[in-house]
Computed example of a mutant assay.
Amino acid sequence: MTDTTTRLLIIGPPGAGKGTQAAQIAQRYGVPAISTGDIFRANIKGGTPLGQQVQAIIERGELVPDTLTNEIVADRLTQPDAAPGFLLDGYPRNVEQVHALDNMIEGDSLDAVVLLEVDTDAVVSRLLKRAELEGRADDTEEVIRHRQHIYAEQTAPLVELFSERGILVAVDGLGTVEEVAERIATGLDSLLTSKAGR
């Protein structure tokens, strides 16, 4: 590994195993895994002013607005543990947030974006099984497929943008945790090495 910062992002549909892989990637590169969902949940649990604001938005069934999400991420990236870099999960979700992130990291774009690609039917059956085990009655097949559809719509422009920037590492997300982690490591090493050599 080099001494420079490593700024990474992981994207993939709900149920693709992003959280599991994010933890492994972060550990491998010695950077914090930053999940906006975790930040929101921690603030809600802690009853912070931010948590109360986010909870009210979620209870209305709305998405947390970009401005608030951008502020939270900007604040998190100034913390000392993020100095050597970071791995983002759940942000940016749209092109506007990508531009906000570009500004936060002073025009230096991300170094690499890991895209977990999975077959929709495989993920749906995985999530239905999980819902059954965890007793999540709300997670019906219709709801899960709807979430997958929204993800695909929202993410397509991001995938295109990161692909144009030459920083996209698309990885088959099906298989054991170890198999997927190995594919990610190979793809990231190859991209980061070629970038370092430029």
Rank of each mutant, 00 (worst) to 15 (best):
G12P: 03
T4Q: 11
S190G: 15
L9C: 05
D89L: 02
L168W: 00
Q27A: 10
D121L: 11
I44V: 14
G166T: 09
N43R: 08
R145K: 08
H146W: 06
G46F: 10
D89I: 06
T140E: 07
A56T: 07
A26E: 00
L88G: 05
E153Q: 12
G166M: 08
L110R: 12
G187W: 06
Q148R: 01
G15Y: 09
L161M: 13
R7A: 09
L158N: 08
L128V: 15
T6S: 07
Q21M: 05
T120W: 02
L161F: 12
R198P: 13
I39A: 11
E59I: 04
G19A: 08
L68I: 06
D139A: 05
P92V: 13
I34E: 03
L128D: 12
R198G: 15
L87A: 00
G107E: 12
D119Y: 05
E59S: 11
I39N: 10
A100I: 10
I105A: 13
T193K: 12
I72W: 00
A74V: 00
L8N: 07
R41F: 05
V159Q: 06
G19Q: 09
Y91I: 09
D3Q: 13
R183Y: 06
G51Q: 01
L192C: 13
S190I: 14
I11M: 13
R165C: 05
A22E: 00
Q53G: 02
E164R: 14
Q79R: 12
T140G: 10
V95I: 15
L115C: 05
L110V: 13
L77V: 02
Q154V: 02
D38G: 10
R136C: 05
T78L: 07
T5H: 13
V54R: 00
K195T: 15
G187L: 06
A26D: 00
T5S: 15
Y151R: 01
E117F: 03
V31K: 01
G166Q: 04
T120R: 09
V143E: 10
Q21L: 02
M1C: 02
G17N: 01
P32K: 04
E132N: 14
G107F: 11
L110H: 13
R7I: 09
I39L: 15
I34V: 14
T120M: 02
S194Y: 13
T36A: 12
L68K: 01
Y91N: 08
G46C: 05
V98M: 08
